[in-house]
Design a protein around this nucleic acid. Structure first.
Lengths: 202, 202
DNA sequence: TTTTCCTTACTTAGTTGTTAGTAAGTAATC
DNA sequence: GATTACTTACTAACAACTAAGTAAGGAAAA
């Protein structure tokens, strides 16, 4: 077929399609978005899309992979700091999400759509969250080794909690941005966390 | 039409349908679940469903209302305790969710499907989360008046954070129950919260 | 430099399956 | 004997996807 061939023109077109699809999937979900809708916005016919992507699921995969790269890069950078420094980067993370709500929304919507095992991207999200938890837990462990973080903290449980809170705040913000201030909420949470993790010595 | 008439037989049938629909919406979402699928599982034809419910969205509304009643009852009971007592009821909340994952899953899936304003149940979820935040914030305020909770805590921001964490933990558990222990995670979070909210006096 | 020719990037037209929802008639129930 | 609770038969719209043909681009040959 065609997807394997590397052609500058085609690659550019594919990126264009992926960007549009990401936008629409973020709004309406995978199941709620039709190929026609995507095609129309790209300025192509429906079979034109299917020339570039084997099928709708292939397009979904491309969207996820593309967006995941950027997202994981950032996460890895932040986590590599280790310990409390990682936590202090959380407001930056919030700012980025606020300015680019598409990414945040895309993953929130797709995650829920793929909770069920058997859903097209279920395994991807299982893997992703395991990796993220490992990343955060590792960062906590580093903090404990440095003596910045209380040793009684269970890194794995705290990782679940931190990711949960960040996701949950983002979701409430996406639902009702007039009522929930993303940056303020995450900044406050970061302070809470710092207080929580730091050894009680004052 | 028919929905207004009150007939014992019909009411029972409607409940039956709502229960089945809730189960299927929880697995596959609203958009991912067909009327035929629901009808088949109820043991009725598709137009048979539409006799009881004006259309698919009407069925969704019925499902949400039904499940929301039970859910909010519980939330109200717990919040009425006020202060730290409310937080100490969180493990019970976790146990209930674990034993009845349908409800948890239903709301997680439907919430994400309705993030977009214009989605059929968007307004419902906006209202629901505002109410829940008010409920939790009120409970924190009570705790502060009693002197159980530090006065520096911002009740509204802490309410966002608490709901976020509970939702986020539930979602991770739904996605990957083998990796995330719902009850343990929430119990640990409850302890964290108690430590966080209590005045620092030891 | 122009012609040849293959590959890439599509289009038009159509298929098949499924969707929510309707119209009209019928069986059960009170 | 009317109201309630359906059924069968259908429709119109739309879903993802396929088949087959074509236009444009770029590289190589004449």
């Amino acid at each position: 077929m065609a997807q394997n061939r590397v052609s500058a023109r085609g690659a550019r077109r594919r990126e264009e399609i992926v960007a549009v699809a990401a936008e629409l999937f973020a709004r309406g979900g995978f199941r709620g978005t039709g190929m026609t809708e995507i095609a129309e916005l790209v300025g192509i016919t429906e079979p034109g899309l299917l020339y570039h992507f084997r099928n709708k699921e292939g397009l979904l995969r491309a969207v996820i992979e593309w967006r995941d790269h950027r997202s994981q890069e950032f996460a890895r950078d932040v986590a590599s700091l280790g310990g409390l420094s990682t936590i202090r980067e959380m407001p930056a993370f919030a700012h980025r999400n606020q300015e680019e709500p598409g990414l945040t929304r895309l993953f929130a919507v797709l995650l829920a759509e793929n909770l069920d095992s058997g859903a097209p991207a279920h395994d991807f999200f299982v893997r992703r969250y395991r990796e993220m938890r490992d990343l955060v837990a590792g960062s906590i462990l580093v903090g404990q080794e440095r003596g910045e973080i209380r040793p009684e903290v269970d890194p794995r449980l705290k990782a679940v909690e931190i990711l949960a809170t960040l996701d949950g705040i983002s979701t409430q913000w996406l639902l009702d941005p007039a009522s929930v201030d993303l940056v303020e909420s995450i900044e406050t949470y970061a302070r809470t966390l710092e207080r929580d993790l730091a050894r009680a010595e004052d």
